[in-house]
Design a protein around this nucleic acid. Sequence first.
RNA 1: GCGGGCGUGGCGAAACUGGCAGACGCGCCAGAUUUAGGUUCUGGUUCUCGAAAGGGAGUGUAGGUUCAAGUCCUAUCGCCCGCACCA
Length: 812
Amino acid sequence: MPEKPYDHTHIELKWHERWQNADFYKAEENSSKPKFYVLEMLPYPSGMLHIGHIRNYSIGDALARYKWMQGFNVLHPMGWDAFGLPAENAAIKNQRPPREWTLDNIAAMKKTHRRFAFSYDWDREVSTCEPEYYRWNQWFFLKMLERGLAYRKRALVNWCSKCATVLANEQVVDGCCWRHEDTPVEQRALEQWFLKITDYADELLDDMAGLEGEWPERVLTMQRNWIGRSEGTEVDFHLEGTGEPIRVFTTRVDTIYGATCVILAPEHPLNETLLDSGVKAQAKAMVDGRAGRDPGDIDKEGIFTGRYAVNPYSGEKVPIWIANFVLMGYGTGAIMAVPAHDERDFEFCRKYGIAVRPVIRPADGPLAIEPGMKAPYCDYGIVENSGQWSGLASADARKQMSAHAEQQGFGKAAITYRLKDWGISRQRYWGTPIPVIHCPKCGVVPVPENQLPVILPDRIEITGAGRSPLENVPEFVNVTCPACGEAARRETDTMDTFIDSSWYFYRYCDAHNSERPFDPEKIAYWFEIDQYIGGVEHAILHLIYSRFFTKMMRDIGLIKNDEPARRLFTQGMVIAEGAKMSKSKGNVVGADVLADQLGADTSRMFVLFAAPPEKEVDWRTEGAEGIYRFLGRVYRFLTRNTPAEARSGESDRKVLRKLHQTLRKITEDFETRWHFNTCIASIMELVNQLYAEEQNISAAAMQQVLETIALMLAPFAPYLAQEMWEELGHDGPVFRHSWPTFDAELAKEDEAEIVIQVNGKLRARLSAPFGTPKEELEARALADEKVKTFMDGKQIVKIITVPDKIVNIVVR
RNA sequence: GCGGGCGUGGCGAAACUGGCAGACGCGCCAGAUUUAGGUUCUGGUUCUCGAAAGGGAGUGUAGGUUCAAGUCCUAUCGCCCGCACCA
């Protein structure tokens, strides 16, 4: 048969239309099948088409198709995309989300998402921009409010002047906004809504033990650090004169006899009364000087307050300082400085001439007192010069001294977390409105459940003035109080969109439920997620929030699982122009162009071929032609060999062996490593061999090989695979066909190739049947002419033989 | 400073359990087809000595273990990521 040229545009358009119009790929759920849940992408309002996600698409996509062909029920949030239609498709490609939030852009976005949510044929979709999704976000909020898990307080918050909104701690990167990396975050005092994620700090930490081995170690470590649990003691020093307590937190109460001053954070509340106005200004300057700077670059600075505090253990009077290295956000915002045993305290006290007094000695040495010491001394050992605790080991002293503080009422053992409650108030237009009403008489009143969802007004003006644009919409703001009926104001803050992503994957299981967020029975069927795929960049934001939400939903009785995802895979990012490809940077052009020029199959497969999925890749398109060429080679080979011609078949054995070896490699890789780059390489090898043996393959073998190639390509290049499937005389979707099984016997080589080494260097090879005895292999090796020349005049010391593999002759 | 990871051709990479380093692709070189270019097909392509056969060296660097090391161990240099005055 004459071959046809590979016309990707024709093929992709043809199947695009067929897939869109028919209910070709309608989800099919069968309780007798195993389930498999792939999640690889967050439904950010603007995230759908994001190039940074092309790797997710490709990985999760290929995996989902494979699992589907294996006979699993697959729930895949991208709906039909999972079964063929890539996001880079022309039909939706122009709906790139707007970068600047103008009214027009928001209108466009709503349109995009409406279309996205309703246009495809899979009934599990959900869009976080939809009113129904607002309803359930708000419903969760009210549940948390009932349980005291949501609360409002005036707090110093992170503020990005470019976003004109508040940011969560997790959204502050190097002191700057995560979306504007050059804009230092300011601190402002505002009334804010918080979720009490700290209630779950211990559980979030402890349950990580069960994720060990299933989640990347790196992610678990990051979460542990983020939660930052540390055990210590809270102790009240007393302000000299008034006796007012100054509570400090320390992990080393055993060193308290070495405390030579107390240091407060510059924003510590006590400063209000402690400092005169000149010093207050200096304290303010300290706070400002710290913003947006790398802690390593900031010199320690302090100011003596002129006041003193009394050590409750020793009764000693020590000076009170304020210093820029003490953080209000951690512990109590006040510390005792023990310069002899802490590096930072040491540096500070040396600078300001404050006494350094060791109280710990090594277990096997004396207490060293060197006036000119250059560094803090001996971490753990025996406590000395510490009243009744002298002579105890550090650890014992810590316990006993904590207990003492509690008995005497001036302190207690305490656990401190770095994790803070999650500030969710945003002054944006596009988040879920927080469903409460502020009534002058009744205070904060929740919106009754039957009035949900509170939806956003259409007519708004974006001011960027640092107040929610909703405040300028009277018909939104002015309401009557649900409790007393008097005039009241609606809350104008909206929720952090990380709320959406914290539970969206549950909603995928039951997207059209109008009674509840989802049906618990459906969740019980699908959850936990078997395999979650996402970028490392979510290690502490999304992946802590969603774990928190899961535990919260369990506690309100909706679900049974403690954790959202059993296994997590973090894929590498796509880097362009030295930076992570991201929608806020706008450096996301490449893949669209590539898909236009070479097609969706090529761009998808190219990304998979570039590197293993956990690795970062630099986005570059040189080399994409290689993939295009390969797909063309496959297609041309197919079309000139269908129907297959009658030929000798003398290469059948060889070709089928290669076929089954390839199939084995891909099958095993899908089960374990997902190194699709090598899968694709092995298909290329197979095709190269087909070209070489083309004239000697029988018709039956040809048909079998081509069908198997179509099936093997289906996860990677769905359009071409589908086209091949049709050319080979099959109806229906190629994904409906089960994944082919490899035959280990057919994959086996006839003979083993034995490598002959002399002193570890390759000198010859020979072929021998599998299982040839050692002695025979050695005899044949020694008889080899080449080997003889290298042994010439030397003594054989020993011979190491690994059957079917290697003979190493050691000579001297 | 603490924690994690990575260093392999001109480039992306492969080598999964210690057993042939560089699969596969890009790029480059040559040949065939073509009026030519492009496409396609075939062959070559780590470095180095050699006309060739063939030899030698080679996985950041220096040691070590082993019959055998890209892979294991020790030290060291470089790069990347995360955390960080966290008391």
